[in-house]
Write a protein that binds this DNA or RNA. Structure first.
Length: 876
RNA sequence: GGGCGUUUAGCUCAGCUGGUCAGAGCGCUGCCCUUACAAGGCAGAUGUCGGGAGUUCGAAUCUCUCAACGCUCACCA
């Protein structure tokens, strides 16, 4: 045995840093738009610039890295464009908080001053997640890194706005929008999260003017009564029809409001009377417009009660005002009752407080026309979703799409490219660069919703609309990898921009990743504090192990219950691979020239493992092709561990420890062949360890693994093997089981007696070395005798009867039990087969192959049964 | 209420187009520090594949239905 220079432990942190640096130095990640190679492009879903790497990012970006590395090895011009998203609300919140800590109030700053602070903040902290992606091993083209507020990208965003405005798809309107009182900004429907809360239904008496009677209205939000401008009943509701047209004196406020009728009111619900607050409820808004009611906004932008309400409640927070109003109505004996009531309340995703419906002037985008080509693209299969079932969700949203509120009352973001003339507010200018006499104009203060910036990502990264080789070469992209939680936010809208601006899809395949949850099923998130820090995991297990472990546990289309213990499988596998390679390296022939020969007279085991290797390549590729990353990982895992290590290497040992130099060289070359294929196959999943090992095993003049060529699945295979190897494996396992039953230690070799037919005898004799070494035999002999072989451990496998004679050491009852158990099993199976074979329909309809198989199975089981029975009787 | 998904060994889950004695990892039991690996090896136990019906010669796999759980969308005060 020669020495190996491979350490007996794999040191992940050293290796990872070394190779990442090397890859960067060699510029392997860079994609060339002048290349003649077929492009393969991915744009990263840009993480939030304020963000830190989560385990979810690890999954998502590992998948992208797998796709890109594979494409690169397949000889494509692999281009993975990285970058970050400016995340208006999140970033602005952080900057404001930082300023507060420095004693600076945002309101005292000019727009320019605030942006100055924000950019400083971004320069200081914005790069963290990018550094983290590098640590993960991502082979992004860092020369193409983009930020959504970069110059060229910003132009693309504004160009998009202007084009849509000119087309009449963007308009300004005074409307009810979702309002976040924390960020004091409008938010889109998608940023509202509905939560079921235990609330109340309050019943109030509303006195009818000039009458003793009153109507009882129910509400979940008492404070909005300050803005009531009508009470509505159903026109067909006999209880109230006589009151229609009369007036209500609104309690606490004193305003006279009409009693109106509308079909919208459900007589069955509550009392059948509904208070109408057009400025604070979307349904009431519609009724307000229909019946020409007053729109009374009773709130300030922070959610406190405004001056339109009685002074008593002015400037009180909405929830404090609620309590006060209920109390005051109770004092006036106008509180009828309070019921417990579960209802859905919309919360602001970022502010995490109940949103308000708020009247304000905002910019909207008409979506119906934009959606049309996007729906068609998915319907026709031009864009494919994996898993496909997301298509339904996508279609449902698209079919019911509403206008999108795209303006935000924030500072950090893309300022809307609209100017109002200082002297005549009705004069509007819309362009990317603004009017020539810009001093006479005021620019719109609002910025665009972040998603209205990042929806143009696949184009914007190339500075669209400027023509370039880049956009020609790398648009459309191939695959988008993202979480299903942003299917509307982002995926759907990117598809719209693709068709709208370039008349072409932005990507062909969309892979929706698993959502990672903790053991209680909660989504892993920073805010819940249940997401482990990936860096702790990298340190504990090694980055490759984390990558492989996560890929193995994330099936397509299902969420994953993540527990860090489950990464052990990855770590153990890295260790296994490392040590297998180390073993092979130890047995390299003297003066080996790193050149692989395969022109040997192979034996059974060699042909078998090479066949298995080819199967593995095929299966692996086909799983990757359908985006089943976990199954692909499993193919490699099983081949390496169960076939290569458990069997072939064990077999290799006996050869390496012999003196037969030719045979040693053959074995080594077969091992080498396996390793030289396993390493490239595994490289996309576990780039570091494989690149490190490759350095030991590659041909002298071969390239680094990252750009080595992808293994072909047409390596030479051997048809004459049949299931001979499986027979040997079963014999070995069976002998080991016998040994285990009678407690023979592994160190002790035993004698074996075999009874079998000629075929099996010839197979065994030709491969007896395998049996002897793997089952630890002292010797073996064939027996023709019909006599009973007494005091033996026995078993029957594939028609071969095996005996290990052991005077006095055998527990006969144990042996008998073992055989009886098998006997029962066989009888069961035979019953099943008999049922099939005696069924005319089966014989007539089943394919010939299946019938033949059943018949053969019956024969061999019957044969086994006879032998088992005779062995049982011998033991008695 | 609509849509989607899940239900397979004690736990976490694989099982592609229906047909080899239903698999893996962890955990558990027994034996091994056998010179690649104890992050390891060998052997072993545990499942009427959620319930019911149907299609089929044949169903964990296809259809229907019921149940439980989860996600998501939705304007009932």
């Amino acid at each position: 045995m020669s020495n190996t220079s491979l350490d007996n432990k794999y040191s992940s942190s050293f290796v990872e840093g070394k190779w990442y640096k090397h890859w960067i130095e060699k510029n392997y990640f860079h994609a060339d738009s002048n290349s003649k190679k077929e492009p393969y492009t991915i744009v990263i879903p840009p993480p939030n610039v304020t963000g830190m790497l989560t385990v979810g990012h690890v999954l998502n970006n590992t998948i992208q890295d797998i796709l890109i590395r594979k494409a690169r090895m397949e000889g494509k011009e692999a281009c993975w464009i990285p970058g970050t998203d400016h995340a208006s609300i999140a970033t602005e919140t952080k900057v404001i908080k930082m300023l507060e800590e420095q004693g600076i109030d945002k309101n005292t700053l000019s727009r320019e001053e605030f942006l100055d602070h924000a950019w400083q903040w971004k320069e200081k902290y914005g790069g963290i997640i990018i550094q983290q992606l590098k640590k993960l091993g991502c082979s992004c083209d860092w020369e193409r890194e983009r930020f959504t507020m970069d110059e060229g990208y910003s132009t693309a965003v504004l160009e998009g706005f202007v084009k849509l405005y000119e087309k009449g798809l963007i308009y300004k309107g005074h409307r009810l929008v979702n309002w976040c009182p924390v960020s004091k900004s409008a938010i889109s429907d998608e940023e509202v999260i509905h939560k079921e809360v235990d609330g109340h239904l309050w019943y109030f008496r509303y006195p009818i003017k000039d009458e003793k009677e009153h109507l009882i209205v129910a509400t979940t939000r008492p404070e909005t009564m300050l803005g009531d401008s009508a009470v509505a009943v159903n026109p067909n509701d006999d209880r109230y029809s006589k009151h229609i047209g009369k007036k209500i004196i609104l309690p606490l406020v004193g305003r006279e409001i009409p009693i109106i009728s509308d079909d919208y009111v459900d007589p069955e619900f509550g009392t059948g009377c509904v208070k109408i607050t057009p400025a604070h409820d979307p349904n009431d808004f519609l009724i307000g417009e229909k019946h020409n009611l007053e729109f009374i906004n009773i709130m300030n932008e922070d959610g406190s009660i405004s001056c339109t309400a009685p002074s008593k409640y002015m400037n009180k927070d909405r929830f404090i005002a609620r309590k006060a109003i209920v109390k005051d109505l109770d004092k006036l004996n106008l509180l009828h009752k309070i019921e417990n009531y579960k209802n859905k309340v919309g919360y602001s995703e970022r502010g995490n407080v109940p949103i308000e419906f708020y009247m304000s002037e905002q910019w909207f985008m008409k979506m119906t026309d934009l959606a049309k080509p996007a729906i068609k693209a998915v319907e026709s299969g031009e864009i494919k979703f994996h898993p496909n079932h997301w298509v339904k969700t996508y279609n449902h949203w698209m079919a019911n799409i509403k206008d999108w509120c795209i303006s935000r009352q924030l500072t950090w973001g893309h300022q809307i490219p609209v100017w109002y003339h200082k002297n005549d507010k009705s004069k509007i200018h819309v362009s990317v660069n603004g009017p020539e006499d810009i001093e006479n104009w005021d620019q719109e203060k609002d910025v665009l919703d972040t998603w209205a910036s990042s929806w143009i990502w696949p184009l914007g990264v190339h500075n669209w609309p400027h023509a370039s080789k880049d956009i020609e070469k790398f648009y459309p992209t191939n695959t988008l990898v993202t979480g299903p939680d942003i299917i509307f936010f982002w995926v759907a809208r990117m598809i719209m921009t693709g068709y709208e601006f370039l008349d072409d899809k932005p990507f062909t395949d969309v892979y929706f990743t698993s959502i990672l949850r903790d053991e209680a099923g909660k989504k892993l998130s920073k805010s819940l504090g249940n997401s482990p820090d990936p860096f702790d995991l990298f340190e504990e297990y090694g980055t490759d192990a984390v990558r492989f472990g996560i890929m193995l546990m994330a099936p397509q289309g299902l969420d994953v219950l993540f527990a860090k213990d489950r990464l052990e499988i990855g770590r153990n596998f890295m260790n296994k691979l490392w040590n297998a390679c180390r073993f092979v390296d130890m047995n390299a022939p003297e003066n080996w020239e790193k050149h692989e020969h395969l022109d040997y007279e192979f034996e059974l085991a060699d042909k078998w493992i090479l066949n298995k290797l080819n199967d593995a390549i095929k299966n692996y590729n086909s799983q990757l092709k359908r985006f089943y990353f976990n199954e692909a990982a499993k193919v490699l895992y099983d081949f390496v561990w169960s076939d290569f290590c458990d069997w072939y290497i064990e077999i290799a040992k006996t050869r390496f420890y012999s003196e037969d130099i030719e045979r040693k060289a053959m074995t080594y070359d077969v091992c080498l062949r396996c390793i030289r294929i396993i390493l490239p196959l595994m490289h996309p999943y576990t780039p570091f360890i494989t690149e490190e090992l490759w350095a030991y095993f590659k041909e002298q003049d071969q390239s680094d693994l990252i750009i080595a060529s992808w293994p072909k699945d047409d390596i030479q295979t051997y048809d004459d093997v049949g299931d001979d190897m499986e027979v040997i494996q079963e014999l070995v396992t069976s002998i080991r089981a016998m040994r285990s039953r009678v407690n023979i230690p592994p160190s002790k070799n035993v004698k074996l007696i075999i009874k079998c037919n000629e075929d099996k005898r010839s197979l065994i004799s030709q491969n007896d070395e395998l049996l002897i070494s793997l089952a630890k035999l002292d010797s073996y002999e064939y027996s023709e005798s019909k006599d009973k072989i007494s005091e033996s451990a026995t078993s029957v496998v594939r028609g071969v009867e095996l005996y290990i004679p052991l005077k006095g050491l055998v527990d006969l009852e144990k042996e008998k039990m073992q055989l009886t158990k098998r006997k029962i099993k066989i009888e069961d199976l035979l019953k099943g087969i008999d049922r099939k074979l005696s069924n005319e329909n089966f014989i007539n309809n089943a394919p010939e192959k299946i019938i033949k198989g059943e018949k053969e199975k019956e024969l061999s089981l019957k044969d086994e049964l006879i032998k088992i029975n005779s062995n049982i009787s011998m033991l008695s």
